[in-house]
Write a protein that binds this DNA or RNA. Structure first.
Lengths: 182, 182
DNA sequence: GCTTCGAACTTTAGCTTTGAAGTCTTCAGA
DNA sequence: TCTGAAGACTTCAAAGCTAAAGTTCGAAGC
């Protein structure tokens, strides 16, 4: 339904024209970058969602698998660490883990060394699902970037990380303006 | 909580190193672009959310206001058109409109010409909230891009729209590979 | 004119997430 | 040892979403 064929989304150009009509003080160059970033990200997430769904797991499951795998062997984390890593509340993490345990993607057990803690561990099946998802994702990503030369890819990566650093190392003040922290 | 100070998110470089450790067939250059895109978008959404919250409206409200304003005067749309435009189900739209009517951002009335239809119309207050949000957003966006020269901005906009066109005009096949439609 | 179909919206049930309250475990101090 | 406090997780209630069923209105066919 989010991708029903008949949906009439304006093109990027039409949207920017509408912005300029309704809001005079707009830099179309800036708006083009921001809108394209946002749309691109949305489309990519739809694509990832389709791929993980084909593997029988949800996008939510995929996020958890990713965090566990990237934590490195033996692929164990506590629920609160996972929650912080994914930007969820501990309560949501509890429910997600419930689901994933019944799906056989992870196991949950008490830490006998400190019985307040819980250990969530990736199962072999969970790890294989992640690898499978990664294979699909890399094919998609390579296709997405296929029209870009090696130089263009380098430049794009450099510019994006520069922007990222600017957002990560700065905090907007009350007016929304970014101010450097260091 | 999603932006608690003590959260230990790995840097982009650390994350890519972890990917390579766990998944050999990975092009770090591609991963860098994709990960940076995703992170950048997430950070920007957090920033927009903070700004709209400061105006007393939710991010969901903002999306609806945006769709109505961009539709042009007299700023009217039907619930199903709004739902399609935002990628929601009609049911979700019904509830959102309920909320926004009580907040005074829009009005809802039956179309007397065709009583099956409903007309959602932006109020003056709703339009002003959107303008205020746009002012904050443009300040943030200009600050975000301040380190980029005019040439760099042009190049970035061009590359992003090229990628966007590739995702929008192509559909992944069963294996996730993008194939051109025309 | 009556009936049936379809379109547009609303309602209902179920799921996921959040915020707040509750439970259990550990640790430090009396 | 006992008590209090803090930490880690779970439970509960409420909000927002989806899918599916229900309602209402309009239009086409008999």
């Amino acid at each position: 339904m989010a991708d029903t064929p008949g949906v009439t989304e304006p093109t990027l150009e039409e949207q920017i024209a509408a912005y300029q009509r309704e809001f005079q003080d707009l830099d179309p160059q800036v708006e083009k970058i921001v809108s394209a970033l946002s749309r691109l990200n949305r489309r990519m997430n739809v694509a990832y969602g389709r791929q993980t769904a084909a593997l029988g797991i949800s996008n939510a499951d995929w996020e958890v698998l990713k965090a566990l795998v990237l934590s490195g062997a033996p692929y164990r984390m506590g629920p609160s660490d996972l929650a912080k890593r994914l930007g969820l509340t501990p309560a949501a993490m509890t429910h997600r883990i419930d689901r994933m345990v019944t799906e056989g993607l992870v196991t949950r057990e008490r830490d006998e060394a400190n019985r307040v803690r819980v250990i969530v561990e990736l199962t072999t099946d969970g790890r294989e699902k992640w690898l499978e998802a990664m294979r699909l994702a890399t094919v998609f990503e390579e296709d997405l970037l296929q029209d870009l030369s090696a130089d263009e890819r380098t430049a794009l990566g450099e510019v994006l990380t520069r922007l990222l650093r600017r957002v990560e190392h700065a905090q907007p003040d009350a007016g929304g303006r970014l101010t450097d922290l260091e």
